[in-house]
Structures are given as structure tokens and as C-alpha cells.
């Protein structure tokens, strides 16, 4: 329980820092702290596999790309360009909407938690975290993924594949079209020369 409160405070603080930080890189660092704390939270809920995957996929791959892009596109040192401060106008409606959402979530969780916990308790055998047959272990996760939830899992994979193909198509190949190999060589040569000229500026 102590772990829950400490992690909860870290989670909310880092999330706040992520959205309020002036420099983009600070936001990335805030998000990194958030993801690591979230993984620790999963561990306290005996979601061992989920916790590890959370770090590998989000912190280890996606967030690194964020950092890569931010570091490359801007110097990142300069703060965000600040426009007109719109906060005073939208503050009141935003707080109302957020509180309404929170209230609804608490109500929904309160209604469903009785049924959910009783089901979970019978399904998961008690035992040390991570051993086979215990809720959240790698064995059980794999079995559920490849038997009970195989179709949703494969459909998700397909959707991600579509997104990847879409990105490749949209980003495209920036080399000018050349019909023959000879023309292609000429194009490559002219591009190389342009790069060299650019360097001598």
C-alpha cells in the first residue's frame, strides 16, 4: 500500500511535468519517469510480463524515437514558442469536464469491481509472482495471447502493419524517377555534386 501511494505521487507528478515542461526534452524525461513508475506499479499488481514489456516497448523503443526526433528537429534547448495564453478561458470548462469524467470512472469502477475481483480471485491461483499458473506470469500471458485472444492479437498486428505500410508510402522515396540505369547514374552524380557544392558554401 505504501508502494502504491509513493508510485501514485510519482506518476501524477511526472505526468504533470510532461505536459507543463517548457522544453520538449524535459517532457520526454518526464514521460520516461512516468513509464518506469508505471512499470513498477504493474509489478506491485503481479503483472510481471506487462511491466517488462511496458519498459521494453514504450521506454526502450517508442520514447527513444521521440527523443531522437526532438533532438534532431530542433536544438531542443530553446523553450516552446509561447503563443497567447488560452488557459484562463478554458480552465473552468476543462475542470468541469475532468471532474465529470473522474466521477463517471469512479462510479463505473465501483459498480464493476465487485464482480471483477470475485472472478479474478477464483481464476488466479495464489503463489509467488511469476511462476507458471499464477496470474500475470509469462506462461499464462503467452497462453492467453495465443489461444483465447489469438484473433484480436493477429488483427492488432495487421492494423499496425497497415500503419507501417502507410507511413512508407506517404514518406516515399525522394530520389527523382529515372527510367534507365544510365539516367539513374546521372541523377545520382548530380545529387552528389549538389551535396559537395552545398558543403563549400
Amino acid at each position: 500500500m505504501i508502494a502504491f501511494w509513493i508510485l501514485g505521487v510519482i506518476l501524477i507528478a511526472s505526468a504533470m511535468w510532461t505536459i507543463t515542461a517548457k522544453k520538449p526534452v524535459y517532457s520526454v524525461v518526464g514521460l520516461l519517469a512516468h513509464f518506469v513508475a508505471l512499470a513498477a506499479m504493474y509489478l506491485t499488481l503481479s503483472g510481471e510480463f506487462l511491466a517488462v514489456m511496458q519498459i521494453i516497448v514504450y521506454s526502450g523503443a517508442i520514447l527513444v524515437l521521440f527523443l531522437f526526433v526532438i533532438a534532431l528537429l530542433s536544438s531542443g534547448v530553446a523553450p516552446f514558442a509561447t503563443g497567447i495564453d488560452r488557459l484562463p478561458k478554458i480552465a473552468a470548462p476543462a475542470i468541469v469536464v475532468a471532474l465529470a469524467g473522474l466521477g463517471f470512472a469512479i462510479y463505473a469502477v465501483g459498480r464493476s469491481s465487485v464482480a471483477a475481483t470475485s472472478g479474478a480471485l477464483t481464476a488466479a491461483a495464489a503463489g509467488p509472482v511469476g511462476t507458471a499458473g499464477v496470474f500475470g506470469s509469462v506462461d499464462d500471458f503467452g497462453k492467453a495471447l495465443f489461444t483465447t485472444y489469438l484473433l484480436p492479437f493477429e488483427i492488432t498486428a495487421l492494423i499496425l502493419m497497415v500503419a507501417v505500410i502507410g507511413v512508407v508510402t506517404l514518406a516515399g522515396d525522394s530520389t527523382p524517377y529515372a527510367a534507365t540505369e544510365k539516367q539513374a547514374r546521372a541523377v545520382r552524380k548530380s545529387m552528389r555534386e549538389a551535396i559537395v557544392r552545398g558543403g563549400e558554401r
Binding site: 520516461l32 518506469v36 512499470a39 510481471e48 510480463f49 517488462v52 514489456m53 519498459i55 521494453i56 521506454s59 526502450g60 523503443a61 527513444v64 527523443l67 509472482v129 511469476g130 511462476t131 506470469s137 509469462v138
Partner: peptide
């Protein structure tokens, strides 16, 4: 002695790049 030991290793080493 972590049961998902090898995955944990991957997770931690992937943070080293930061």
C-alpha cells in the same frame, strides 16, 4: 531470482541509451 529474468535484462539495458 526473477522469473522473466531475460526480459528484465532486455528492459533495463534498453534504458541505457537515455
Amino acid at each position: 531470482n526473477v522469473n522473466a529474468g531475460i526480459l528484465f535484462l532486455l528492459a533495463i539495458t534498453s534504458l541505457g541509451v537515455y
